[in-house]
Amino acid sequence: MNVGIIGIGTYVPENIITNEHFESYLDTSDEWITKMTGIKTRRFADDDMDTSDMAVIATQKAIEDAGIQKEAIDLIITATSSGNHTFPSVSCIIQEKLGLNPVPAMDQLAACSGFIYSLITAEQFVKSGTCKNVLVVGSEKLSKITDLNDRNTAMLFGDGAAAVVVSEVSEGKGFIAHEWGSDGSGGQYLFDNVETGYINMNGREVFKFAVRIMGDISTKVVEKANLTADEIDMFIPHQANIRIMEASRERLGIPKEKMSVTIDQYGNTSAASIPLSIMHELKNGKIKDGSKLVLVGFGGGLTYAGMTMVWGK
Protein backbone atom coordinates (compact mmCIF):
# COMPACT_ATOMS: atom_id res chain seq x y z
CA MET A 1 0.00 0.00 0.00
CA ASN A 2 1.19 3.50 -0.86
CA VAL A 3 0.30 6.22 1.64
CA GLY A 4 0.51 9.95 1.02
CA ILE A 5 -1.30 13.28 1.10
CA ILE A 6 -4.60 13.63 -0.76
CA GLY A 7 -5.62 17.10 0.41
CA ILE A 8 -4.09 20.24 1.95
CA GLY A 9 -5.38 23.48 3.45
CA THR A 10 -3.73 26.44 5.20
CA TYR A 11 -4.52 29.58 7.16
CA VAL A 12 -2.39 32.56 8.19
CA PRO A 13 -3.66 35.58 10.13
CA GLU A 14 -4.12 38.86 8.28
CA ASN A 15 -2.11 40.88 10.80
CA ILE A 16 1.39 41.36 9.30
CA ILE A 17 4.17 42.33 11.71
CA THR A 18 7.21 43.88 10.04
CA ASN A 19 10.79 44.05 11.29
CA GLU A 20 10.32 47.79 11.70
CA HIS A 21 7.82 47.03 14.47
CA PHE A 22 10.59 45.51 16.60
CA GLU A 23 13.07 48.13 15.46
CA SER A 24 10.81 50.74 17.04
CA TYR A 25 11.31 49.51 20.61
CA LEU A 26 14.14 46.94 20.71
CA ASP A 27 17.87 47.33 20.13
CA THR A 28 17.70 45.76 16.68
CA SER A 29 17.20 46.67 13.04
CA ASP A 30 15.51 45.38 9.92
CA GLU A 31 18.93 44.86 8.35
CA TRP A 32 20.20 42.76 11.28
CA ILE A 33 17.06 40.62 11.54
CA THR A 34 17.03 39.97 7.80
CA LYS A 35 20.74 39.11 7.66
CA MET A 36 20.75 36.84 10.71
CA THR A 37 17.40 35.07 10.26
CA GLY A 38 15.99 35.74 6.78
CA ILE A 39 12.76 37.05 8.28
CA LYS A 40 11.09 40.19 6.91
CA THR A 41 7.54 39.77 8.22
CA ARG A 42 5.49 37.37 10.32
CA ARG A 43 1.77 37.01 11.11
CA PHE A 44 0.22 37.44 14.55
CA ALA A 45 -3.28 36.20 15.30
CA ASP A 46 -5.74 38.50 17.06
CA ASP A 47 -6.32 38.02 20.78
CA ASP A 48 -9.67 36.33 20.17
CA MET A 49 -8.21 33.76 17.73
CA ASP A 50 -6.43 30.80 19.29
CA THR A 51 -4.50 27.83 17.93
CA SER A 52 -7.61 25.70 17.42
CA ASP A 53 -9.45 28.44 15.52
CA MET A 54 -6.70 28.61 12.91
CA ALA A 55 -6.55 24.80 12.82
CA VAL A 56 -10.29 24.50 12.12
CA ILE A 57 -10.08 26.85 9.13
CA ALA A 58 -7.10 24.97 7.67
CA THR A 59 -8.79 21.62 8.32
CA GLN A 60 -11.98 22.58 6.49
CA LYS A 61 -9.91 23.52 3.44
CA ALA A 62 -7.90 20.28 3.57
CA ILE A 63 -10.99 18.07 3.71
CA GLU A 64 -12.52 19.97 0.79
CA ASP A 65 -9.28 19.69 -1.19
CA ALA A 66 -9.18 15.94 -0.52
CA GLY A 67 -12.63 15.59 -2.07
CA ILE A 68 -14.00 13.57 0.84
CA GLN A 69 -16.83 14.07 3.31
CA LYS A 70 -15.87 15.01 6.86
CA GLU A 71 -17.49 11.77 8.03
CA ALA A 72 -14.68 9.88 6.27
CA ILE A 73 -12.05 11.13 8.77
CA ASP A 74 -10.97 8.28 11.08
CA LEU A 75 -8.35 9.96 13.26
CA ILE A 76 -7.14 13.48 14.09
CA ILE A 77 -3.50 14.25 14.98
CA THR A 78 -2.45 17.82 15.68
CA ALA A 79 1.17 18.88 15.97
CA THR A 80 1.40 21.92 18.23
CA SER A 81 3.45 23.45 21.02
CA SER A 82 0.92 26.20 21.69
CA GLY A 83 -2.44 24.55 22.19
CA ASN A 84 -5.35 26.42 23.73
CA HIS A 85 -4.96 24.30 26.88
CA THR A 86 -2.88 21.43 28.18
CA PHE A 87 -6.18 19.58 27.76
CA PRO A 88 -8.57 19.30 26.03
CA SER A 89 -6.31 18.86 23.02
CA VAL A 90 -6.55 20.99 19.91
CA SER A 91 -7.54 17.79 18.09
CA CYS A 92 -10.55 17.33 20.36
CA ILE A 93 -11.58 20.93 19.77
CA ILE A 94 -11.32 20.36 16.00
CA GLN A 95 -13.48 17.25 16.31
CA GLU A 96 -16.17 19.22 18.14
CA LYS A 97 -16.03 22.38 16.03
CA LEU A 98 -16.29 20.50 12.73
CA GLY A 99 -18.89 18.06 14.00
CA LEU A 100 -16.77 15.07 13.07
CA ASN A 101 -17.58 11.52 14.12
CA PRO A 102 -16.40 10.58 17.65
CA VAL A 103 -13.03 9.50 16.25
CA PRO A 104 -9.76 9.30 18.21
CA ALA A 105 -8.17 12.74 18.55
CA MET A 106 -4.76 13.54 19.97
CA ASP A 107 -2.08 16.21 19.94
CA GLN A 108 1.54 15.33 19.25
CA LEU A 109 4.24 17.42 20.91
CA ALA A 110 7.54 17.34 19.05
CA ALA A 111 7.86 21.11 18.61
CA CYS A 112 9.04 22.13 15.12
CA SER A 113 9.49 18.48 14.07
CA GLY A 114 5.86 17.82 14.97
CA PHE A 115 4.35 17.89 11.50
CA ILE A 116 6.71 15.23 10.14
CA TYR A 117 6.32 13.20 13.35
CA SER A 118 2.56 13.31 12.78
CA LEU A 119 2.85 12.33 9.11
CA ILE A 120 4.94 9.30 10.10
CA THR A 121 2.40 8.38 12.79
CA ALA A 122 -0.54 8.76 10.40
CA GLU A 123 1.20 6.60 7.80
CA GLN A 124 1.39 3.69 10.25
CA PHE A 125 -2.34 3.82 11.00
CA VAL A 126 -3.26 3.84 7.32
CA LYS A 127 -0.81 1.09 6.38
CA SER A 128 -2.05 -1.14 9.19
CA GLY A 129 -5.63 -0.80 7.94
CA THR A 130 -6.74 0.74 11.24
CA CYS A 131 -7.65 4.03 9.54
CA LYS A 132 -8.46 5.11 6.01
CA ASN A 133 -8.24 8.90 6.24
CA VAL A 134 -6.13 10.60 8.92
CA LEU A 135 -6.31 14.34 9.46
CA VAL A 136 -2.86 15.76 10.27
CA VAL A 137 -2.71 19.35 11.46
CA GLY A 138 0.14 21.72 12.29
CA SER A 139 -1.12 24.80 14.11
CA GLU A 140 0.70 27.35 16.23
CA LYS A 141 -0.06 30.60 18.00
CA LEU A 142 3.51 31.24 19.07
CA SER A 143 2.90 34.95 19.63
CA LYS A 144 1.21 34.07 22.92
CA ILE A 145 4.26 32.21 24.28
CA THR A 146 6.92 34.60 22.95
CA ASP A 147 8.34 37.34 25.14
CA LEU A 148 7.98 40.28 22.78
CA ASN A 149 10.42 42.28 24.88
CA ASP A 150 13.19 39.68 24.54
CA ARG A 151 15.59 40.77 21.80
CA ASN A 152 16.77 37.18 21.30
CA THR A 153 13.38 35.66 20.46
CA ALA A 154 10.78 38.39 19.93
CA MET A 155 11.16 38.66 16.16
CA LEU A 156 11.60 34.97 15.37
CA PHE A 157 8.15 33.46 15.65
CA GLY A 158 4.82 33.75 13.89
CA ASP A 159 1.34 32.25 13.88
CA GLY A 160 -0.33 30.01 11.31
CA ALA A 161 -1.92 26.66 10.59
CA ALA A 162 -1.98 23.96 7.94
CA ALA A 163 -3.71 20.61 7.59
CA VAL A 164 -3.46 17.59 5.32
CA VAL A 165 -5.43 14.40 4.81
CA VAL A 166 -3.25 11.30 4.80
CA SER A 167 -4.67 8.30 2.95
CA GLU A 168 -3.88 5.60 0.41
CA VAL A 169 -2.51 6.94 -2.87
CA SER A 170 -1.74 5.41 -6.24
CA GLU A 171 1.35 3.41 -7.15
CA GLY A 172 4.50 5.51 -7.33
CA LYS A 173 3.07 8.30 -5.13
CA GLY A 174 3.25 9.06 -1.41
CA PHE A 175 5.75 8.66 1.40
CA ILE A 176 8.95 6.77 0.56
CA ALA A 177 11.32 6.91 3.52
CA HIS A 178 11.71 8.66 6.86
CA GLU A 179 14.15 9.22 9.71
CA TRP A 180 13.23 10.57 13.13
CA GLY A 181 14.69 10.77 16.59
CA SER A 182 15.56 12.89 19.59
CA ASP A 183 18.42 14.12 21.74
CA GLY A 184 16.99 14.90 25.15
CA SER A 185 20.33 16.20 26.39
CA GLY A 186 19.69 19.30 24.28
CA GLY A 187 16.30 20.04 25.82
CA GLN A 188 17.91 22.69 28.02
CA TYR A 189 18.66 24.79 24.94
CA LEU A 190 15.08 25.29 23.72
CA PHE A 191 12.12 25.06 26.06
CA ASP A 192 9.07 26.84 27.39
CA ASN A 193 9.81 28.35 30.76
CA VAL A 194 7.02 27.31 33.12
CA GLU A 195 7.76 30.27 35.37
CA THR A 196 7.33 32.89 32.65
CA GLY A 197 5.26 30.95 30.10
CA TYR A 198 7.64 32.11 27.38
CA ILE A 199 10.04 30.36 24.99
CA ASN A 200 13.65 30.20 26.17
CA MET A 201 16.37 29.53 23.63
CA ASN A 202 20.14 29.26 23.57
CA GLY A 203 20.50 30.34 19.97
CA ARG A 204 24.15 29.34 19.59
CA GLU A 205 23.62 25.75 20.76
CA VAL A 206 20.39 25.28 18.81
CA PHE A 207 22.10 26.61 15.67
CA LYS A 208 24.97 24.12 16.01
CA PHE A 209 22.59 21.20 16.52
CA ALA A 210 20.32 22.25 13.67
CA VAL A 211 23.07 22.70 11.08
CA ARG A 212 24.42 19.23 11.84
CA ILE A 213 21.17 17.30 12.15
CA MET A 214 19.31 18.93 9.25
CA GLY A 215 22.13 18.05 6.87
CA ASP A 216 22.49 14.52 8.24
CA ILE A 217 18.79 13.68 8.10
CA SER A 218 18.26 15.19 4.65
CA THR A 219 21.07 13.06 3.25
CA LYS A 220 19.86 9.90 5.01
CA VAL A 221 16.26 10.06 3.77
CA VAL A 222 17.41 10.62 0.20
CA GLU A 223 19.73 7.61 0.44
CA LYS A 224 17.03 5.45 2.08
CA ALA A 225 14.68 6.32 -0.79
CA ASN A 226 17.34 5.19 -3.29
CA LEU A 227 17.33 8.65 -4.82
CA THR A 228 20.04 11.15 -5.66
CA ALA A 229 20.07 14.87 -4.96
CA ASP A 230 19.60 15.53 -8.68
CA GLU A 231 16.27 13.69 -8.58
CA ILE A 232 14.82 15.90 -5.82
CA ASP A 233 12.42 18.52 -7.14
CA MET A 234 11.88 20.49 -3.92
CA PHE A 235 13.70 20.67 -0.60
CA ILE A 236 11.30 21.85 2.11
CA PRO A 237 13.11 22.52 5.39
CA HIS A 238 11.57 23.77 8.61
CA GLN A 239 11.66 27.55 8.34
CA ALA A 240 13.69 28.41 11.42
CA ASN A 241 16.65 30.38 10.13
CA ILE A 242 17.84 31.04 6.59
CA ARG A 243 21.47 30.27 7.49
CA ILE A 244 20.51 26.83 8.85
CA MET A 245 18.39 26.21 5.77
CA GLU A 246 21.20 27.20 3.41
CA ALA A 247 23.71 24.98 5.22
CA SER A 248 21.31 22.03 4.89
CA ARG A 249 20.71 22.73 1.22
CA GLU A 250 24.42 22.87 0.50
CA ARG A 251 25.00 19.63 2.42
CA LEU A 252 22.30 17.93 0.37
CA GLY A 253 23.77 19.35 -2.81
CA ILE A 254 20.75 20.91 -4.47
CA PRO A 255 20.47 24.36 -6.13
CA LYS A 256 18.90 27.36 -4.42
CA GLU A 257 15.87 27.40 -6.69
CA LYS A 258 14.87 23.97 -5.39
CA MET A 259 14.68 25.06 -1.73
CA SER A 260 11.41 26.44 -0.40
CA VAL A 261 11.82 29.75 1.43
CA THR A 262 8.82 31.20 3.25
CA ILE A 263 10.57 32.34 6.42
CA ASP A 264 10.77 35.83 4.95
CA GLN A 265 6.95 36.02 4.97
CA TYR A 266 5.89 33.96 7.99
CA GLY A 267 8.87 33.69 10.34
CA ASN A 268 9.19 30.48 12.34
CA THR A 269 5.72 28.94 12.67
CA SER A 270 7.04 25.72 14.23
CA ALA A 271 4.81 22.72 13.39
CA ALA A 272 2.98 24.73 10.71
CA SER A 273 6.06 25.84 8.77
CA ILE A 274 6.60 22.81 6.51
CA PRO A 275 2.98 22.43 5.31
CA LEU A 276 2.71 26.21 4.83
CA SER A 277 5.78 25.94 2.60
CA ILE A 278 4.27 23.03 0.68
CA MET A 279 1.17 25.09 -0.06
CA HIS A 280 3.32 28.06 -1.07
CA GLU A 281 5.20 25.97 -3.63
CA LEU A 282 2.00 24.36 -4.91
CA LYS A 283 0.61 27.83 -5.61
CA ASN A 284 3.88 28.83 -7.30
CA GLY A 285 3.75 25.75 -9.51
CA LYS A 286 7.04 24.39 -8.16
CA ILE A 287 5.33 21.29 -6.74
CA LYS A 288 3.39 19.31 -9.30
CA ASP A 289 1.92 15.84 -9.54
CA GLY A 290 4.87 13.45 -9.32
CA SER A 291 7.30 15.93 -7.73
CA LYS A 292 9.85 14.34 -5.40
CA LEU A 293 10.11 16.20 -2.09
CA VAL A 294 12.41 16.16 0.92
CA LEU A 295 10.89 17.42 4.17
CA VAL A 296 13.15 17.97 7.18
CA GLY A 297 12.79 19.64 10.57
CA PHE A 298 14.20 20.00 14.08
CA GLY A 299 12.79 21.41 17.27
CA GLY A 300 12.67 21.56 21.04
CA GLY A 301 13.26 18.24 22.72
CA LEU A 302 15.56 18.29 20.92
CA THR A 303 13.73 16.44 18.14
CA TYR A 304 14.41 15.88 14.46
CA ALA A 305 12.67 14.24 11.52
CA GLY A 306 12.97 13.92 7.78
CA MET A 307 10.93 12.37 4.99
CA THR A 308 11.06 11.77 1.25
CA MET A 309 7.82 11.60 -0.69
CA VAL A 310 6.31 11.84 -4.16
CA TRP A 311 3.50 14.39 -4.41
CA GLY A 312 0.15 13.30 -5.76
CA LYS A 313 -2.86 11.06 -5.24
Rank of each mutant, 00 (worst) to 15 (best):
D183H: 15
G186L: 03
L190K: 15
L190Y: 13
F191N: 13
F191V: 03
E195V: 10
E195Q: 14
Y198V: 02
Y198L: 07
I199N: 10
M201W: 09
R204N: 14
E205Y: 08
F207W: 12
K208D: 12
F209P: 08
I213D: 14
D216I: 01
I217T: 15
I217C: 15
K220W: 05
K220G: 06
K220M: 07
V222D: 07
V222E: 07
A225E: 02
N226W: 11
N226D: 13
I232C: 04
I232Y: 07
D233G: 09
I236H: 04
I236V: 14
I236T: 04
P237F: 00
I242M: 04
M245H: 01
M245G: 01
A247T: 04
R249Y: 00
E250P: 03
E250F: 02
R251E: 11
G253D: 08
G253P: 11
G253K: 10
I254A: 01
I254D: 01
I254V: 11
K256C: 00
K258H: 03
M259P: 01
M259R: 02
T262V: 07
I263W: 05
I263V: 12
Y266T: 11
N268Y: 10
A271E: 08
S273F: 06
S273N: 13
P275T: 09
P275R: 12
P275N: 12
I278E: 09
I278Y: 10
H280Q: 10
L282F: 08
K283F: 02
I287Q: 09
S291V: 03
